[in-house]
């Protein structure tokens, strides 16, 4: 109990500031937030399977086994192999192919989103902060590119260049950087006139420093949300392009390709379409949920609230 008759001594002030939140508090808070916990675990699981596909997959991804064709989920093949999610029309293990497919789908999505975010955010922030001719050029380019029908362009480019991983990422970069550029430019326009940017200018900060150190951290939250959503969008686009036969080429696996292949057998083997479809659905859902969470915790005030609600923070003296 603080004695109110005396002035506060520095040690009293010290004690009230002793609350230091460590990573264990974050872990505890995440466990309390079921939805985020689900989304985060799913994404982590996906990352583990993507990185460790060679060790975790029970079978060869392209290992044919014509004796065990079209087995339903949970069956045991003639050779005694166990197929968790069944097999496809060539007797390949669906679970294994799902894992290898995740590798392609996720890396195309993440890589495409990272590259388009880097290009788009850089262009957008520069355009928004400097204005003038640079802004006109960048934004007219963005307007022009946004008015192109993206699926058509993707099909056209992939038809000329041929499908495959690298070209897919390239197409996604070309078709998606504008989304980031437009948002970053709007945010930079807003931040440029803010008092803290003006204060930084008056302290002698140069424009590069202001864009990187002062504007970027403040506009990071919406960009991070967009980034996460964009990964989901790109995974879906990859699935549709591969479904149409312009993305990843067989015998490599990708979720879209698996659905495309399974479509012919949907009457007799529902699992060939259902499981890759569910994988896409849950990935996109988790990423959307994570985006929501990321928005909350990138802001210092909201992060504090999110933590305070779920930790013993309030109860500590």
């Amino acid at each position: 109990m603080v004695d109110l008759s005396k002035p506060l001594s520095p040690t009293d002030v010290d004690e009230s500031r002793q609350v230091q939140l460590g990573w264990t508090d974050y872990m505890r808070a995440i466990l309390q937030d079921y939805i985020t916990f689900f989304a985060l675990s799913f994404v982590l699981l996906l990352i583990v399977f993507t990185l460790g596909a060679d060790f975790l997959a029970p079978h060869e991804p392209t290992g044919l086994n014509l004796r065990d064709r079209m087995l339903p989920p949970g069956s045991i093949g003639r050779g005694g192999d166990f197929y968790l999610l069944g097999t496809d029309e060539l007797g390949r293990d669906l679970f294994t192919r799902l894992i290898y497919g995740a590798r392609v789908s996720v890396s195309v999505g993440v890589l495409g989103a990272v590259l388009s975010a880097i290009v788009g955010v850089t262009a957008g922030l520069m355009a928004g902060y400097h204005g003038g001719l640079l802004e006109d050029i960048v934004m007219r380019l963005v307007d022009g590119m946004l008015s192109l029908p993206s699926l058509l362009v993707a099909l056209f480019v992939l038809f000329i260049l041929g499908g495959g991983f690298g070209n897919l990422v390239l197409v996604f970069l070309v078709l998606h950087w504008m989304v980031f550029a437009r948002m970053a430019r709007g945010l930079a326009l807003d931040a440029r006139n803010s008092a803290y940017v003006q204060a930084a200018v008056s302290q002698g900060c140069k424009s590069g420093r202001i864009i990187l150190r002062h504007i970027l951290p403040n506009v990071m939250a919406p960009i991070l949300v967009l980034f996460t959503l964009e990964i989901a969008v790109l995974i879906l686009s990859e699935a549709s392009l591969s479904f149409l036969g312009f993305g990843v080429q067989p015998p490599d696996a990708s979720w879209g390709l698996m659905i495309s292949g399974g479509r012919e057998h949907i009457r007799s083997a529902w699992w060939l379409v259902a499981f890759p479809g569910l994988a896409i659905f849950f990935t996109a859902l988790s990423l959307n949920l994570l985006a929501n969470w990321a928005r909350a915790i990138t802001d210092p005030v909201q992060r504090w609230r999110w933590l305070a609600k779920r930790t013993k923070f309030r109860k500590s003296k």
């Binding site: 803010s194 008092a195 803290y196 003006q198 204060a199 930084a200 150190r213 002062h214 951290p217 403040n218 990071m220 802001d299 210092p300």
Partner: peptide, 10 residues
């Protein structure tokens, strides 16, 4: 306005 003149995320 000092509060808005400081960068909120640094």
């Amino acid at each position: 306005d000092a509060i808005t003149s400081l960068n909120p995320s640094l």
